[in-house]
Design a protein around this nucleic acid. Sequence first.
DNA 1: ATGCACATACATACTGGTTGGTATGTTCAT
DNA 2: ATGAACATACCAACCAGTATGTATGTGCAT
Lengths: 197, 197
Amino acid sequence: MADADKTRQALLEAAYEEIYRHGFQAASLNTILERTGVTKGALYHHFGSKQKLGYAVIDEIISQKLDREWLTPIQQPGHPIDVMIEVIQQAGQQITSQQIDQGCPLNNLAQEMSPIDPGFRQRIDHLYRKWQESIEKKLRDGQQGGTVKPSINPADAALFILASLEGCMGIAKNAQSIDELKRCAQGLFGYLDSLRC
Amino acid sequence: MADADKTRQALLEAAYEEIYRHGFQAASLNTILERTGVTKGALYHHFGSKQKLGYAVIDEIISQKLDREWLTPIQQPGHPIDVMIEVIQQAGQQITSQQIDQGCPLNNLAQEMSPIDPGFRQRIDHLYRKWQESIEKKLRDGQQGGTVKPSINPADAALFILASLEGCMGIAKNAQSIDELKRCAQGLFGYLDSLRC
DNA sequence: ATGCACATACATACTGGTTGGTATGTTCAT
DNA sequence: ATGAACATACCAACCAGTATGTATGTGCAT
């Protein structure tokens, strides 16, 4: 059934948009149905509850976005620090002024849902862990290649890089300012430079 | 009317707790009324709407907490980098395992409300700006006293310090791990150390 | 090849509960 | 007696979820 898959996918994408805009709890199933033209019966056929729909959005939509926009680019060959700075700058240049004040989809869900729903928390944690490991791997490669300081702990550094990246996006989201995002990222670049050999 | 002020204050504090736990949109006025024993008439007498109640929570409760726990401690005399590390460590030690997965009240509201309510955004931005300026002032003092590198831009560095501080708390909130908070903070301390003369 | 059994993929209409907000009434101090 | 400080009762809107019905296949025995 190609139609069924199309319906499911349409629901997932509309749900992602609605959740990204309003958060999970304030996301309205009726709005998702209006946007897709799908009926409530179909939604509850494909996903058994609002919660499971939210889980699927993380597992399928956000997870793919993370792979495409961060994990894969980070693993490209080159000097680890240069590559990471490049990837972050690339992301910063592609960002629209509309996106800046909506922030990072993963972080939004993390801040809203992790204290109140273990299922969300675990799924988000899994993605954060993959993200961190991707950075960690790149740093470790750099240490072996002699381009990253051997004295640093790659796991700890990766954790801080990820945290401050999310922090920068969070601050810029509230300020609604791409300029503030770039100023903030300069601080992160300074830290990254300090990891060079 | 001492009673009226007491009622108002009780509402503010209960509202703060409820909002901290569930976010603003999911915060229930009825729950706040149950917890305080105040009636809906009284609430709508003191605050004209849920929105204005939220504004008052930022302006009065969260603003005070920020002053008490961060702005004032940062301004204490001493080596700027040492003082900041001390203040952050102090905050980290006082944190309970219950508080860690609730995160920073200000950041929670920022991520949830800034894209959808300009009134919230401006108020939160005002507090962030004060926070940043507090750090910036301390860095500038250090530059004049010869303990902080003159080459850095205090405003930019303060912005990044604030962002990565919020980032660390956000990551630790999702991981629900004080250990992860401390590992993450080590990265921030490394950055702070790099600002020394 | 045809007809019955069954499942998938929806569609429609409804329910019980909760929400923020309000209209109206009362108490009490000045 | 006038306004501040409530109290009570109510409302329309919205919410997630469900019960029921139906149309379209799909597998399989005959």
